[in-house]
Structures are given as C-alpha cells and as structure tokens.
Simulated assay, not measured.
Amino acid sequence: MTITPRLLASSAVLALSAGFLSACGSDAESTVASDCEPIAEVETVEEGVLTAAVAEFPPYIGAQGGKPTGIDGELLTEIAEQLCLELDLQVTSFPAITSALESGRADLSAGSWTINEERQEKFEVSDPVYLSLLSVVSADGWSTVDELEGKRVGTTTGYLWVDDVQQILGADALRLYESEQAVYDDLKAGRLDAGLFTEGAVAYYMDSDGNPEGLENEVIEADDRIEMTVNEPATGVLIRKGATDLLDAVNTVVAEMQTSGTLEELLTGAGISSESVVLPE
C-alpha cells in the first residue's frame, strides 16, 4: 500500500500529477429517477454528473465495478443521490486528485483527507466527517507511548507523528518503513514488538487476513508530547475551489449521516473505534 497524503507532513504529496484515470464513464444511460428532487441546485463540471476523484485506500474508499466502496464511498453515493446526480467515479493517484480538483476536471474527492490550512487555501473543504486516529498494534494491547520504550517499534515514514515519537523513543529506536503494509508484515513475522498506524488502515489489514497472530489494535492515549494525540486530525471532503453551493450540500449530507448514526455504523463496521466519530456542531 502506498503512503497516503491525509496525515503526511510532507507537501510533496500535493504535487501535480498526470494520469487522471476514469473507472466509470458518465456516457452510460442515467440511473437517476426522472422525478428525483435534489436537496439543492449545484453547478458541476459536467451537467447532471457528480465527478468524484478518488484513490484506493480501504476501508475508507475504493472502487468495485465502477462504484465506490468503503466509508467515504457510501458518503459519495449519498451525496450524488441527494443531489439527483449521476456519480462518475474517477480512480487515480493521490497527487492526480489534487491536480484534477485544481484544474476543474473533478468536483470533489473523499477518502480520509485530513483538514489543514494548505488544503483549505486550495480547495473548499467540508465540515469534519470523522477523526483519523493514531493506533498502536501489538500482541500485548499497549496503548501508551511509555509502554513502547525499549521495544522494537515500526511506523511509516512521513506521518505527522514520526518526529514526536522519535523525540520520545529516540531516532534510532523507531524503525521507518515505506508503507503500512510493510510495518504490518514485520509485526506479524515477529520482527517488531509494536507498530504505529492509522487506525482504519491497520483494522482493514487485520480483518483481511483474519489476524491469526491475535494482535490488538488500540487507539493511543493522549500524550502532550505527541501533537496529533491531543489535537486529533479531522478528515473532510475536498471540493473544487469556488463551488460553495456544492460545499453547502455536502455539509448537509455529512451532518445527516452523522446525526442518524450512519457514519458511526460504517466506521465501527470497518473495525474503527467510536472515538473517531464526529457529531455536527
């Protein structure tokens, strides 16, 4: 699995990229009912179509048969349905998503995008959808940084927590990997005592292979020495700049799914703790 941009400290992942690939064309016959009444009238890149650019990042977002899957996939489907628009899912790379939004080739993107100032300057960004939490995976159920001292600990390079954890454990004590999958593989093989992950991603790995090693996935306890455990990062939907009518509609749908408990069901159903749930203000 490639490193994702949602929690990365490096701005390199926002570099523009070619290769905007379509997984589901909009030329097919519309499936929107003729008597559908939208919750709002919005302007989109293509009339009657909601163009969503996404990259595979289960359990948050994926594609199967041209349709979105995962937590954010359900959100995109609901947005399109409530706006009476055909959903055109464009599956591509993370850098290509930002390029497509900036150039006006896509309307929006969902998939655990962390809300930060840089993205709020470049795009319209929805209200928080859910939190993206840091978790510790180990055979012993550790949930604090102090429990990791003197242990073999691994994590993925580039994440926001890396510098803080290195300050606590020591730069040489934290092994850095190019992907969360590589960390998980070494943890299962016994080459690590613990791994630091985005909670949802490792929950997906553990569910996919059945977790035969009996590893435990615990959200790390708040620690003033690790910034993101105190100010937990929220995720949002990225929308092309200036599309404020679409932004308002997305926020309406997000709030409805939060209030109804639908988002909580999707999160916990994917093995993600209820601590990640956000309720509308």
Results as ranks from 00 to 15, higher is better:
32 V>R: 02
132 S>A: 15
68 P>S: 01
203 A>L: 03
132 S>G: 15
140 D>M: 13
99 S>L: 12
192 L>N: 03
49 V>W: 02
81 E>L: 14
11 S>Q: 14
174 L>R: 00
67 K>Q: 13
5 P>M: 09
21 L>M: 14
170 G>K: 02
132 S>H: 13
45 V>L: 08
124 E>F: 13
85 L>I: 04
126 S>L: 08
179 S>E: 00
217 N>E: 04
18 A>T: 14
76 L>Q: 04
6 R>L: 15
248 D>A: 15
259 T>R: 11
240 R>F: 05
61 I>G: 04
55 A>D: 09
74 E>G: 10
109 S>D: 03
28 A>D: 12
252 T>S: 12
107 D>L: 10
53 A>W: 01
70 G>L: 04
81 E>T: 11
141 G>C: 08
128 P>D: 08
211 N>M: 00
266 L>R: 01
43 E>R: 11
261 G>P: 01
217 N>T: 01
41 E>K: 12
204 Y>W: 11
200 G>H: 03
263 L>Q: 06
205 Y>H: 07
176 L>I: 01
125 V>S: 10
267 L>Y: 00
9 A>R: 14
163 D>M: 10
277 V>F: 06
238 L>E: 01
9 A>S: 14
34 S>Y: 09
1 M>W: 12
107 D>Q: 04
65 G>W: 03
51 T>H: 11
158 G>K: 00
49 V>R: 05
37 E>T: 13
255 A>V: 06
188 K>Q: 11
79 I>Y: 03
200 G>R: 00
189 A>Y: 05
230 V>L: 09
116 N>S: 10
89 L>H: 08
188 K>F: 03
135 S>R: 07
17 S>I: 05
279 L>W: 12
131 L>M: 13
190 G>N: 07
10 S>T: 12
128 P>L: 11
187 L>M: 02
142 W>L: 09
33 A>M: 07
198 T>R: 15
223 D>N: 02
59 P>D: 01
19 G>P: 00
133 L>H: 07
161 W>V: 01
162 V>R: 02
109 S>G: 08
236 G>F: 06
102 E>I: 14
281 E>Q: 13
198 T>D: 15
97 I>H: 04
250 V>M: 10
191 R>G: 08
181 Q>R: 13
57 F>S: 05
41 E>A: 14
248 D>T: 15
210 G>T: 04
47 E>D: 07
183 V>H: 02
39 I>R: 06
162 V>F: 04
178 E>P: 10
280 P>L: 08
